[in-house]
Design a protein around this nucleic acid. Structure first.
Length: 607
RNA sequence: UGCCCGAUGGUGUAACGGUAGCACAGCAGACUCUGGAUCUGUUUGUCAUGGUUCAAAUCCAUGUCGGGCAGCCA
């Protein structure tokens, strides 16, 4: 059943529609499944990025819209590349992204729970059902839950391999890695049968067991499916199912020295968990015949999962390859996996992007089989739209220049009312202190302004937001000719509610009272790369933007001393900012999540 | 020169044989104590050629272009 009232980000948006959801709807309508069950199966060999976010939103979105479940599963069949650090980050990122939206669709399992052996239609079968955190009772009686791990199924997968051998559909091959390559042929040339292809079942069984028992060194033998070495599909040319790896696994320790390959483990993991729709990216399309072959060869008693593929996300001016992201991290070209310049979920979170914005983005880009390049502007729009509604407005000056209001009494201070969020009157107002000496933005004054510039200029007027209209009388410079101070007079009647308050002045600028200003470190981020497709060719690192981070000390209105990490701020006329994890009491650090749209900057640039 | 997949404005997507729509971007204007937000208007598109049909973005054929596949990675 579809639920048309479901929305993506909690915002009023229609339920998404795409070819995969159409298939799910049709399968449900035709009674092929009574309940959808998807899964999100990352390999814990890196942090999740926004491309994974697309997949998470798809898989959990389907579970959400069709009343199903989505299992979180670690696809951990390669001990060499995986680590618990990644497992933990993945759990955190998934929970954060689906929080408040699809928490009740997150399929987990009791900690340590393994698949159960059951009998279905007289056949031995393995199954591991999902548990959803929110469906559990009081906390005291709830078991600890954890994600699924493909490595928890190594026993069952091994049994399935044995079964395949008994059926004469798999054999132990002694070919070296190099020879295996040679025998495989090439895309336009058929392969050759391995000389070990016709080993008897008993010999295969014996050898495979001995592989498992550690009798052979790494790479000495493999277990291979017996399909067709002449198949036009490379993946059907007797693919390797198991390889020998004497190495410790982050989840199973030293229990195993043979590990199943992705193709063998994945379809069986899907089956064990009762997955109905196994959704992955396009590069696995050619693997689908193998996925089906394995499952069908085993004559399994329960309904089989089916694989569907969609195009992975490519986003302008960034990279999505986990290998390359790892390289940036390892070579300290960024501060870590959660560097706010990275497209990782943890980086975006640290930057101040909300899960709602990411979900809205995922909704807007859609799901297809076309490999396109998504304009970053789509992401930026989703972030701005979300932050505009929730951010508290504050006054902060990033690059200060001193202004003295010469007709304002020395030592006097007044508290002016400022609106917290014009999009939401419930956010209320706050007081902002005003005094004789202020800071304004350097950009808001031009000694020789360009055409259509309507900020402050010598002899010109501008409104100070929430305060007075001021006129610039004098520009004070140091010996080197740098402007050190602007001396201005205020129209003392122009304060909000005052007699001349309604005077029309073209420009309104932000300001901070010097005596009351709070210093804050502000990190200004720009795109990490200088070209739209850093991945397209050449050394991606040569396209790194040398100006992707600029750190300034800003002058902030005093209320910002109480800034909260969960809160989002708009520094008026500048952009959206969030408190960074590096902030300490009395030493705020803000990340600029994104600038405000700046049509003036664009117009000024054109000339 | 094998197999698989794809192609709709600048970008991303919808239209499921019957008026080519939406979003972003762009442009123009209105409004504004944020050159923000909001509102209005607007430029631009079915890869090509045939065929089927009263009717084709949609079905068929051929071609062109793009992506993927030769890890004991996932």
């Amino acid at each position: 059943m579809t639920d048309q009232n479901n929305t993506v980000a909690g915002a009023a948006a229609p339920a998404p529609s795409d070819f995969i959801r159409d298939i799910v709807a049709a399968d449900l309508a035709a009674g092929r499944h009574t309940k959808v069950h998807t899964r999100f199966p990352p390999e814990p060999n890196g942090y999740l990025h926004i491309g994974h976010a697309k997949s998470i939103c798809l898989n959990f979105g389907i579970a959400h819209e069709f009343g199903g479940l989505c299992n979180l599963r670690m696809d951990d069949t390669n001990p060499a590349k995986e680590d618990v650090e990644y497992v933990e980050s993945i759990i955190q990122d998934v929970k954060w992204l689906i929080g408040g939206w699809a928490d009740d669709k997150l399929g987990l399992k009791p900690k340590g729970q393994m698949p159960e052996t059951q009998s279905v239609n007289g056949k031995t079968d393995f199954h591991l059902a999902a548990v959803v955190p929110s469906t559990l009772g009081p906390r005291s009686s709830t078991p600890d839950l954890e994600p699924f791990f493909a490595s928890d199924y190594f026993d069952q997968i091994f049994q399935f391999a044995l079964q395949l051998v008994r059926l004469g559909k798999a054999y132990v091959c002694d070919l070296s890695p190099g020879d295996t390559d040679t025998y495989r042929g090439s895309p336009d040339r058929p392969g050759q049968d391995s000389p070990f292809r016709d080993r008897g079942v008993e010999e295969n069984l014996d050898l495979f067991l001995r592989m498992k028992n550690g009798e052979f060194p790494d790479g000495a033998r493999t277990l291979r499916a017996k399909i067709d070495m002449a198949s036009p599909n490379i993946w059907l040319r007797d693919p390797v199912l198991y390889r020998i790896r004497h190495s410790e696994h982050h989840h199973t320790g030293n229990k195993w020295c043979v590990y199943p390959m992705y193709d063998f483990a994945h379809c069986l993991s899907d089956y064990i968990e009762g997955i109905t729709h196994s959704i992955c990216t396009l590069e696995f399309e050619v693997h689908r015949p193998l996925y089906d072959w394995i499952l069908e060869s085993l004559h399994l008693p329960r309904p089989l999962p089916h694989q569907f593929e969609f195009a992975r996300l490519s986003l302008g001016y960034t990279i999505m390859s986990k290998r390359k992201l790892l390289q940036l991290v390892n070579e300290h070209l960024v501060t870590g996996w959660d560097d706010p310049r990275l497209p990782t979920i943890s980086g975006l979170r640290r930057r101040g992007v909300t899960p709602e914005a990411l979900r809205a983005f995922a909704y807007h880009i859609g799901i297809t089989k076309y490999n396109g390049l998504t304009d970053v502007a789509v992401l930026e729009h989703a972030i701005r739209e979300d932050l505009n509604m929730r951010a508290l407005r504050r006054l902060a000056v990033l690059r200060p220049i001193k202004v003295v209001i010469t007709n304002y009494p020395e030592g006097q201070t007044e508290e002016l009312d400022a609106v917290n969020n014009p999009e939401n009157s419930a956010a209320g107002t706050r007081k902002v202190p005003f005094s004789r000496t202020l800071f304004i933005e350097q950009d808001d004054f031009k000694e020789t302004p360009p055409p259509k510039y309507f900020r402050l200029r010598p002899g010109g007027e501008v409104r100070l937001k929430y305060a007075y209209i001021i006129q610039c009388d004098e520009v004070v410079k140091d010996a080197a000719g740098h402007i050190t101070e602007l001396r201005c007079t205020a129209d003392l009647g122009s304060k909000t509610g005052g007699p001349t308050a309604s005077r029309k002045v073209k420009g309104t600028i932000h300001w901070v009272s010097a005596a009351h200003a709070l210093d804050a470190e502000v990190r200004l981020y720009d795109r990490l790369f200088t070209v739209p497709e850093p991945d397209a060719g050449g050394d991606f690192k040569s396209f790194l933007n040398p100006h992707s981070l600029e750190v300034v000390t800003a002058k902030c209105e005093p209320s910002l001393k109480d800034a909260q990490p969960t809160e989002r701020y708009q520094f008026e006329r500048l952009g959206y900012f969030a408190l960074d994890a590096d902030a300490r009491p009395g030493q705020p650090v803000f990340n600029r999540t994104i600038t405000l749209k700046d049509t003036w900057a664009k117009a000024a640039q054109k000339t």
